[in-house]
């Protein structure tokens, strides 16, 4: 057998998948900007993503902020006399620019992306998506658009809350464990804070929201082969969203902060 054959087949498979994803993405975006819209479905998705993800995102950013403060202290206090401002700075920049959006994105990928892939995948294999079409309802408009718009808009909200909670986590550790002066810590944080730090994080959040919901919908929509296929779709949705989040995170950081 020709040893190049499997490589060629894999390459063709990759091209086919890329083409299918591009088609899916452009069709979804096209329907995002054209009426009719299903506002009730959008509201339900926004609540699901924005409200019910709050505890998960809050917990992760809280402990991330706490760990960051502690870690920075053990690293910097030996070098710097101004440990307070160093810790405040690292926590604030670390949370708003990187950890807040990335952690929220990954958590939502696990929580929302997986659920979307499972739901749409089940609808696909039980022919519910076909049924939508026969009932003169476009499945992109009915299923995909509300989810993507909810992801785009609600992830920044989640991350904004996560930023506050994460910075608060750093404050708790600094004040109650490391014994810093609360007033000085808050002042140091406030002096460092720049709009661009928060804004870049929110831009990331929106991009991650798009990625998570797109991957969830895409893998669910194109799943096949019964329960096993739905399981595979769920896994693929989470894994691909997580990888894309980390890649996109680097790219956006590069765009905003490399001078």
């Amino acid at each position: 057998m020709n040893p190049l054959r499997p490589i060629g087949a894999a390459f063709l498979g990759f091209l086919a998948a890329t083409g299918q994803l591009s088609m899916f993405t452009s069709t979804a975006i096209w329907h995002c900007v054209r009426p009719p819209f299903f506002f009730r479905l959008l509201a339900r998705q926004m609540i699901d993503i924005g409200y019910y993800s709050l505890p998960v995102v809050g917990m992760t950013t809280l402990f991330a902020g706490m760990a960051l403060a502690l870690q920075t202290y053990s690293g910097f206090s030996r070098l710097s006399a101004e440990a307070e401002s160093a810790i405040a700075k690292v926590v604030l920049l670390g949370i708003t620019r990187e950890l807040g959006p990335v952690l929220a994105g990954l958590m939502v990928a696990g929580r929302i992306g997986a659920a979307m892939a499972a739901e749409l995948g089940t609808m696909r294999v039980t022919e519910q998506i076909d049924a939508l079409t026969t009932l003169s309802t476009n499945p992109y408009k009915y299923l995909v658009v509300p989810r993507i718009i909810a992801g785009l808009t609600m992830l920044p909200v989640l991350v904004f809350v996560g930023d506050i909670v994460g910075v608060f986590g750093g404050y708790i550790v600094s004040v109650y464990k490391l014994g810093f002066n609360p007033g000085l810590y808050i002042k140091a944080s406030w002096d460092i804070l720049q709009a661009i730090d928060v804004i870049s994080g929110l831009v990331k959040a929106s991009a991650f929201g798009f990625i998570v919901t797109l991957m969830g919908c895409y893998h669910g929509y194109h799943s096949k082969g019964g329960a096993q296929g739905v399981g595979a779709a769920t896994t693929n949705a989470v894994v691909s969203a997580s990888i894309l989040i980390l890649i996109t995170n680097y790219i956006i950081t590069e765009l905003f902060f490399s001078t």
Binding site: E127, Q128, D130, A131, S136
Partner: peptide, 14 residues
């Protein structure tokens, strides 16, 4: 499609 009614094999209820 508005003129077509379809009964799916597994009913395909939402």
């Amino acid at each position: 499609n508005r003129n077509i009614g379809m009964l799916f094999q597994g009913a395909a209820l939402f």
